[in-house]
């Protein structure tokens, strides 16, 4: 098995986590090697999944499937010290399902993060990604593709990043809403705090074929303002502390969102 359970309460086979009828489960795992992990949340079931990688995991793939009336809150801390790493998530939702996927990417070197989601009728989805380069040299490529498959579906893509002076982030986000759908609400927001020398490229794409939708996208790329650093230093913080406060501040909104996921999903584990 490619992961250790930190807390287990459900049946599983090798590399698969399956949550069955009426269950409200909490699973925490530590992924120990490169793997492909399938997660299935059956009808009327809820899963709160929390995962973390060990440092030697370079290639990780989650294949997630929800069945009708199910809920999933998936939070994953992808940390790697290898020079090249990859995290891929494929999501297939279902009617009346709710899915929130929170990813914290804390790596060095080259990292590819690829998330594809299919959002069905009456499904509500939220994808929150936080990228922190720290002091490392990071070349990150983030791709998030969401396709609405059913009417009355709701989706949010949120990305926040702090990019240091040695690092780069290329973000491509796409939302596709085909012609036959109605009452779809889908948005994409990305926000970056950049230090001098950082490179950020964003390509948000909205492919809208239906007339009965509400969509939006926003991109914010802010350079660290030296006047803000100086103001904090005038209150006694040294330069490093001041930059840390600004960094955490820029990510605070995203961290709050992730923390509120469970409340939003109403996933109560008994």
């Amino acid at each position: 098995m490619s992961f250790n359970y930190l807390k287990k309460g459900i049946d599983c086979t090798e590399d698969e986590i399956k949550v069955k009828n009426e269950n409200k489960e909490f699973v925490a795992v530590q992924v120990k090697e490169d793997s492909k992990i399938k997660i299935v949340v059956e009808e009327n079931s809820n899963l709160l999944f929390s995962g973390i990688t060990r440092f030697n995991v370079n290639d990780l793939f989650f294949d997630i499937e929800l069945k009708e009336n199910s809920k999933l809150v998936f939070t994953f801390n992808f940390g790697s010290i290898s020079e090249k790493s990859k995290l891929k998530i494929n999501l297939k939702s279902a009617k009346n399902s709710l899915v929130i996927i929170n990813n914290l990417i804390d790596v060095k070197g080259k990292v590819d993060f690829d998330l594809k989601g299919l959002i069905e009728e009456n499904c509500e989805s939220e994808f929150n990604t936080l990228l922190s380069t720290g002091t490392r040299d990071v070349d990150s490529k983030i791709k998030i593709n969401i396709e609405h498959k059913g009417s009355n579906s709701k989706n949010e893509i949120n990305l926040a990043g702090v990019i240091n002076s040695k690092s780069k982030c290329d973000f491509e986000g796409e939302i596709y809403i085909p012609e036959n759908l109605e009452e779809v609400n889908s948005s994409m927001q990305s926000k970056f705090l950049c230090y001098d020398g950082a490179e950020v490229n964003t390509l948000p794409v909205l492919k809208i074929e239906s007339k009965h939708v509400k969509t939006s996208h926003g991109v914010s790329v802010i350079n660290v303002d030296p006047k803000q650093v100086e103001y904090l230093m005038s209150r006694g913080l040294n330069e490093e502390e001041a930059n840390e406060v600004l960094k955490v501040g820029s990510l605070a909104g995203m961290l709050d969102k992730m923390a509120n996921s469970f409340k939003k999903a109403g996933v109560i584990v008994g």
């Binding site: 006694g236 913080l237 406060v245």
Partner: peptide, 16 residues
């Protein structure tokens, strides 16, 4: 004084 987006007043003072 400058604005500090995302930095709460109490956080600034505690760190100060």
């Amino acid at each position: 004084p400058v604005e500090l987006d995302g930095v709460k007043n109490h956080v600034l003072l505690r760190q100060g």
